[in-house]
Nucleic acid binder design. Structure first.
Length: 572
DNA sequence: AAAAAAC
């Protein structure tokens, strides 16, 4: 059920027929309903998933024992002290009662909270109304968009935000974070400023910041769905919409702005925008927003929000210690909620590492991959814009159908068109840079390929998080070359953590010390080569990868020999 | 560590 609701959010078109098979895959209790596959006979009631079938499924295997529990509320109003975020967590856990299953859904997930006076979580959206004055229309819009049962982060995060508390929320990719903050914002704002809302004050009252235009747009779309039927003024900030704020009558009646940081800063500096009436500020993809390039912009925005009772919240699937410290410093008496394991991908995503000797071997590998049956659309990540462009060109030249490309070097229109094709299912292979790595919700994406090795664990987690969304299964393949050796182990650990398997030799790689990383890079490069050769001889390990390897060599003979500059300049 | 993205 939940998976169904999640699937039907976001801007992407949603194929019920296609989803039906997925649900049955997950839902052992569901009766097979051949009629359900018939045209037009599928309704949401046809596939009630058990409530415990949450998005978060703990995979078997991985590293040792794994706790898979659900934290249940905060009985007795137990106080919790906010700590530094690292180290031990003050947890309150409870078994969920379900039995772990071999291959089906594991019916357990874990939520941990930290902070004082944590509000009781909700078990249903209806329960919200019993506790808070949520506008009827908002709940109706929720239902109209097939949101029926809250996910973990929604269950815990929404009451916290409803009670005007500051929140740091960490929840895996594709688990419904957007709704977790939009619903409380719209509820707490009460009614649009343009109406007879005496409490509205003057000027924008809520701001959501996101790192990319595409993501801001997606959040905006979500917001519009919840805004149906009321005269909310929600603005997706851009040069054009920002200029409309020159009109004071417009400016004073804005309710919510969704924006990227720099655009907002520009308007503040132009004197077109006053943030002193902002009561809700959300940083989506918080760790990204707090890294060096965005930090000063975000700080400027935070400083401009001078309303005494402003509520701040940060959301992400990953929050490294440094970013968390910064975030906690911004928040007032915050509650920290972690769903699942921080910095860890969903176990629903089957991850693998594929050895490709060097950069020149990547294209043949990918072509081989795409010559075999695959589930479009496939999302392919490269490290730079030129590499994205030239890889897309190469694929087209090699006859791969419906190849698209998306990076920030393209014009706004090109970017919008690419997203639109993706949403319509017209893209089969989408080649992109990090711009697509975070937050984007394309329901159909079943496979992600890291053509270029991700430059951080966080990048890896977010990239592969474009699949496996809303309870679906996904697949992620990561190419690595000899040069990626120094960072291989850290990514391999992520795979292990989330239940995927990793060849032994990678697990045994020594941990690179920071000081000697560069030096060790050379040593390890040799180790990687040797170990990778061993794999080639070992039938037991990663059949797929070996297939890819041999096909790669074959494809190389027939494949194009001349390579675009953009593709070859990777190995500096 | 390093590129990308933000206007």
């Amino acid at each position: 059920m939940e998976a169904f609701q999640l699937l039907s959010r976001g801007g992407a078109r949603f194929d019920k027929q296609r989803f039906l098979s997925d649900v049955q895959l997950f839902n052992k209790t569901a009766q097979k309903d051949p009629k359900g596959k018939g045209k037009g006979s599928v309704t949401s009631h046809d596939f009630e998933l058990p409530a415990e079938l949450d998005f978060f499924k703990y995979a078997k295997g991985g590293t040792g024992k794994r706790k898979a529990t659900e934290k249940v509320g905060n009985p007795g109003g137990k106080r919790r002290k906010v700590g530094d975020g690292s180290g031990d967590e003050d947890e309150n856990e409870d078994e969920d009662g379900g039995e772990p299953e071999e291959d089906g859904p594991t019916q357990k997930h874990r939520v941990t909270t930290k902070g004082s006076d944590v509000p009781q979580h909700i078990d249903s959206f209806e329960a919200l109304r019993e506790r808070y004055p949520v506008p009827q229309r908002l709940l109706a819009n929720l239902a109209d968009n097939s949101y029926k049962h809250p996910t973990g982060i929604q269950s815990y995060g929404i009451p916290i935000l409803m009670e005007s508390r500051d929140l740091a929320a960490i929840s895996p990719t594709g688990t419904g974070k957007t709704l977790s903050y939009l619903l409380p914002i719209m509820s707490n704002l009460g009614s649009p400023a343009s109406g007879s809302n005496s409490d509205a004050g003057v000027g924008v009252r809520a701001i959501v910041l996101a790192p990319t235009r595409e993501l801001a747009h997606q959040i905006y779309n979500e917001c519009l769905k919840l805004a149906v039927g009321r005269k909310w003024r929600v603005i997706l900030f851009s040069k054009a919409t920002a200029s409309t704020l020159g009109d004071k009558n417009v400016r004073d009646k804005v309710d919510i702005i969704i924006s990227t940081p720099l655009r907002l800063v520009a308007s503040i500096q132009e004197g077109n925008l006053d943030l002193n009436n902002v009561r809700h500020l959300v940083l989506d993809e918080a760790d990204r927003m707090l890294d060096s390039e965005f930090l000063s912009q975000v700080q400027e925005i935070v400083a401009a929000c001078t309303h005494p009772t402003i509520q701040k919240a940060v959301f992400s699937a990953t929050l490294p210690a440094g970013a968390e410290k910064l975030a906690m410093g911004m928040l007032r008496n915050p509650i920290r909620v972690v769903v699942g394991l921080k910095d860890t991908p969903l176990p629903l995503i089957a991850q693998s590492l594929t050895y490709v000797a060097d950069d020149a071997s990547k294209l043949p590998s990918l072509l081989t991959y795409l010559s075999q049956p695959y589930n479009p659309p496939v999302l392919v990540f490269t490290s730079t814009q030129p590499r994205a462009t030239s890889l897309a060109e190469e694929l087209v030249l090699n006859g791969i159908p419906n190849v698209d490309c998306l990076h920030a070097g393209m014009t706004n229109k090109e970017r919008e068109d690419a997203v639109s094709r993706m949403r319509k299912g017209e893209s089969w292979v989408m080649v992109s840079t990090e711009v697509m790595a975070r937050g984007m919700d394309f329901k159909g994406v079943r496979e992600v390929i890291n053509y270029d090795f991700p430059t951080s664990v966080q990048s890896y987690v977010h990239r592969i998080g474009r699949t496996g969304r809303a309870g679906r299964e996904g697949k992620a393949v990561t190419y690595f070359t000899d040069e990626d050796g120094p960072y291989l182990k850290s990514i391999a650990n992520v795979l292990l953590q989330s239940g995927s398997t990793v060849p032994d030799w990678i697990v045994k790689l020594p941990k690179p010390s920071k000081m000697k990383k560069k030096q060790m890079g050379k040593i390890k490069r040799a180790e990687t080569v040797n170990a990778a050769r061993k794999i080639g001889r070992n039938d037991a390990i990663k059949k797929r990868d070996m297939i890819a390897g041999s096909k790669r060599r074959k494809a190389k003979e027939h494949g194009p020999t001349d390579r675009d500059e953009g593709v070859s300049n990777f190995s500096g």
